[in-house]
Design a protein around this nucleic acid. Structure first.
Length: 647
DNA sequence: GAGTCCCCAA
């Protein structure tokens, strides 16, 4: 309340200065045609992305000492929001509106509400909102949209229900905003109800591109691909946003081939060159599927379709995508080449490189890049810190990681989030310092998530700490009793300790809850084609043969990490032969050889025995092998791995 | 004559 009075007082003080600007004594309200011409000219320049021209026009007009009317205030607010250094500031508009009683106009007050939101002020809009007596659908939509945009989802939803309570009918823009909110909170049930509501009220019509896209996106983000695709297929018109939504949805659900096919359809439909973000997304798919051939094709496409019309930012996004693709497909040299040739780099570029070095186990290079980036005055962001902390973690650099973590708040004004705490737990835990990890968790300023406990659990498994592992599992499962990964990890801990009864108990709980372990699969590219191998694949015979050859070279299978109770050593070895990454490797080695560098991907973490076998194979067959698991790129050469057996 | 909406790179 006090702040409110202060604001009004301040507003009036500002009004004096504003009336000076508009030479109050001789000021006159704009005649209709002048006001109209001013508003339209500014709007025209704003819509064509030239706010500076709009500003020049405004300044010329201002010199003439004519004061704005209620129609020009919203346009001027829009102008000030699009300028880095606006000639007039938010509160000046507010005070001006109060002085000339424009605040009773709903268009003016809605603009003011939006302006305060854009300045990061959530109190002033709420105060203004409560003072407005003629609230309408647009005002409510602005409230919902701004709260939603700023992550205050409950508040946003609250305004939607308040609006319904006040019997104000949502329009299609409100619905779009609410669908976007549904996507954030992943509430499929609510989304479906709204979809039905929109159809019944005839708000959702076939030709409404934006609203239809928001429905597609809602279903996609709520993980109902079937509905998303159905709505997408029925759309009469589509734009790049619609394509983005559906392709991202397939990508997010791991259906990479479908995503690529859709991208091909998009090109086939004769669209203009896709936006850089879409190209980056498809490059990302090439990266995660280690499909270098398609990645190179895209590289060619990007170079071929480059034009002057593409902005510097768009080019930067594409080149960043290319670097990321080359790193993920195991071509660090190409990635570095592009990186070095780039004239402009931003924080994303540096983060990709740091993360790349980290995933290759090249932690010193990651640290060097991190230092160089900072020395160039580029401020690391939250993702950069995740990358560098994770690089330290994967190389056991506990002290360096801890110092960087401390610098986040101290030097960069970046508040650590859950993901950073997870990195820290991993940093201590991976290095075997599980008790320090536990101590770190107990001192966290926020409630630890299931991921924090899951990370500790995984570290306990690697360092065979059964007691703490059980505790971590209990904590993690209390937060999410349906998390498959944590059950699997717990059962592995029991299996390592040969406590087969406990393994059986965990499996039983999983069965009761209807949970199934994620199926392991690997893939490899050979002669331009990607081959996928799942558990129980008949190509296991290849793997058995390869095992024989490796055995002759002195390789001894490590049966200690088998997760279920097998009595005979033969059965254990046979079990190990079935590991999909070995089958993939054997498939390439036993065939006609393929290229010198073999690239294999796996959806789960590589096991100890496979890691050893790959080291042996790289020497016995004289091949370079890159094995990518969800965390690391293991580069095998001459019997050694780039990760130095620390992963 | 004015104000509100979809997707998007690490």
């Amino acid at each position: 309340m006090q702040r409110g009075k202060h604001l009004v007082q301040k507003s009036f003080t500002c009004a004096i200065s504003l009336t000076r600007i508009f030479s109050s004594s001789s000021s006159k309200a704009l005649s209709l045609d002048t006001a109209f011409s001013l508003s339209s000219t500014i709007r025209y320049h704003l819509s064509s992305g030239q706010p500076k021209l709009a500003l020049i026009h405004f300044l010329q007009w201002q010199k003439r000492g004519i004061r704005p009317d209620k129609f020009t205030i919203p346009v001027l607010i829009k102008l000030s929001l699009s300028l880095e250094e606006p000639p007039l500031h938010g509160e000046q508009f507010h005070s001006f509106a109060i002085k000339f009683s424009y605040t009773i106009d709903i268009f003016v007050s809605t603009s003011l509400v939006e302006m305060y939101f854009k300045h990061g002020d959530f109190e002033a809009p709420l105060r203004l909102f409560s003072e407005i007596t003629n609230k309408d659908v647009t005002l409510f939509t602005v409230m919902i949209s701004e709260f939603s945009r700023n992550g205050l989802r409950c508040e946003a939803m609250g305004f939607f229900f308040k609006m319904l309570n006040e019997r104000i009918e949502p329009n299609k823009i409100t619905l779009t905003t609410i669908f976007s909110l549904c996507s954030q909170i992943k509430n499929l049930t609510f989304g479906k109800v709204l979809h039905g509501f929109g159809l019944r009220r005839a708000l959702i019509i076939m030709d409404d591109l934006i609203l239809q896209t928001s429905v597609v996106d809602m279903y996609a983000k709520c993980e109902n691909l079937c509905y998303a695709k159905r709505v997408f297929d029925r759309m009469r018109k589509r734009n790049l946003a619609s394509w983005n939504s559906i392709i991202t949805a397939y990508f997010a659900n791991g259906m990479f081939q479908n995503a690529l096919e859709l991208f091909r359809d998009l090109l086939f439909e004769g669209w203009q060159r896709p936006r850089s973000s879409m190209l980056a997304l498809v490059l990302n798919i090439c990266g995660v599927t280690t499909d270098l051939r398609k990645g190179k094709e895209l590289h060619g496409y990007i170079l071929k379709c480059s034009s002057r019309e593409i902005s510097e930012m768009e080019k930067l996004i594409e080149f960043n995508g290319l670097i990321d693709m080359y790193i993920k497909t195991g071509n660090m040299t190409s990635a570095i080449l592009i990186f070095e040739r780039m004239q402009k780099r931003n924080v994303v570029t540096w983060t990709i490189m740091i993360s790349g070095y980290g995933t290759y186990g090249l932690s010193q290079k990651a640290l060097d890049a991190f230092d160089e980036m900072r020395s160039l005055g580029i401020k690391p962001d939250g993702v950069t810190f995740i990358s560098i902390l994770s690089a330290c973690s994967h190389s056991g650099l506990v002290d360096e990681g801890r110092e960087i973590f401390l610098s986040m708040n101290r030097d960069y004004d970046t508040v650590p989030e859950m993901k950073h705490f997870v990195c820290m737990v991993d940093l201590y835990g991976r290095a075997g310092r599980v008790n320090e990890a536990l101590d770190f968790i107990s001192r966290m300023p926020i409630e630890p998530s299931k991921f924090v406990w899951g990370t500790l659990l995984s570290c306990c498994r690697n360092h065979k700490n059964l007691k703490l592992g059980e505790f971590a599992a209990k904590k993690a499962l209390e937060l999410d009793r349906y998390d498959v990964g944590n059950y699997i990890m717990l059962s592995r801990i029991y299996a390592d300790a040969k406590r087969w009864d406990d393994v059986a108990k965990v499996r039983m709980v999983m069965k009761e809850l209807g949970l199934k372990a994620n199926t392991a699969y690997s893939w490899v590219e050979k002669k331009g084609k990607v081959y996928k191998f799942s558990v129980g694949d008949r190509l296991k015979e290849f793997s058995v043969k390869m095992y024989d050859i490796l055995n002759k070279a002195g390789f001894e299978p490590d049966t200690s990490s088998i997760g279920h109770n097998l009595e005979h050593e033969e059965a254990k070895v046979s079990d190990l032969c079935g590991h999909t990454e070995k089958v993939a490797l054997a498939f390439v080695l036993m065939g006609d050889g393929g290229e010198k560098l073999i690239r294999i991907g796996k959806n789960l973490r590589v096991c100890k025995d496979c890691h050893e076998a790959f080291k042996f194979a790289s020497k016995a067959y004289g091949r370079e092998i890159i094995l990518k698991d969800p965390n690391l790129y293991h580069q095998f050469s001459q019997g050694c791995c780039s990760c130095n057996d620390f992963w």
